[in-house]
Amino acid sequence: MKFLFSILLLCLFSFSVSAADMPSRIEINYAVTTDIGEGEINEVMEIKHTDDGHSYSIHSEAQATGIFKLLEPNRIVRHSEGIITQRGLRPARAYEKRGKKEPSLAAFDWKNHTITLKHKKQQLHEKLPEGTLDRLSLSYNFMFAPLPEHNIECYLPNGNSLVLSSYTITEETLNTPIGKMKTVVLTRQEDKSSKLKRKIWLAQNNHMLPVRIVSVEENGREIEKIVTGINISYKADE
């Protein structure tokens, strides 16, 4: 049975990468709530594919609104770009920028198996483990790669270091502002002493897109974002 299941996953993966109806551009709108006030963050994510279907770009911008904007007036910009492989996304460059602060940058050198991390004016070079992703590419990776049966392990840049992250895999029916969705839920496993928490809901019937993310950041801030709109284009940008 496990052998047949593996064959089915492989077939689904091969189809997803080569099928003519694979999206070339996706825009997602999220409403975001935090533990400080009733403000919202409006975030737009885009994923772009070239005509040959082998590269990607994901861009995310978050802007506080309402009361929350008084406390967090600056935009948060995240970006990831790279290529699509048979094992999923392989980032070449990723960064996060908050307002006018210097961005945190990760540059992936797969040929030499090294990653350069720039954070708070510090620059470090680390060994680059196979399968390393960044925060954005992890959320979209399973559009292109078969999902493991029980858990996921991968390295992610976190400021000036690489952190090994482990996620368990479950299923859940999720109510969203745009309807009920069958989802796969990735839950990050943390040490008991860690403040960090992260769960990602991927829509099973909509290209495994991330439709909800709940996290607790290093500063203790609780953030939940949930999809409010999805716009998909199936033609390459002209």
Rank of each mutant, 00 (worst) to 15 (best):
R212C: 02
L164H: 15
K48G: 10
S57L: 13
E72R: 15
K235S: 09
K48P: 04
S194R: 08
T50S: 13
V163Y: 06
S215M: 09
A107N: 13
I223G: 05
H150A: 05
S215F: 01
L70G: 06
L138W: 07
Y56T: 00
L162D: 05
G53Y: 08
P103R: 00
R135V: 15
G159F: 00
H113A: 10
N74G: 04
G66L: 07
I223H: 08
D134P: 00
K101H: 11
K199E: 05
Y140M: 10
M181Y: 06
Q122L: 05
M143Y: 01
Y56K: 01
A107Q: 14
A62H: 05
Q123H: 14
L4D: 03
F5V: 08
P157A: 03
K2S: 08
L4Y: 09
P23G: 06
R90Q: 14
A203E: 01
S6K: 15
E130T: 12
T116H: 11
I213C: 01
Q123S: 15
I226K: 07
E72T: 11
A20I: 15
M22G: 10
N205H: 09
D35F: 04
R221P: 02
H59Q: 08
N205W: 04
P91C: 03
Y56L: 00
M22F: 10
K120L: 13
H113F: 10
S60A: 08
E43Y: 12
W110S: 06
L10N: 04
M143N: 01
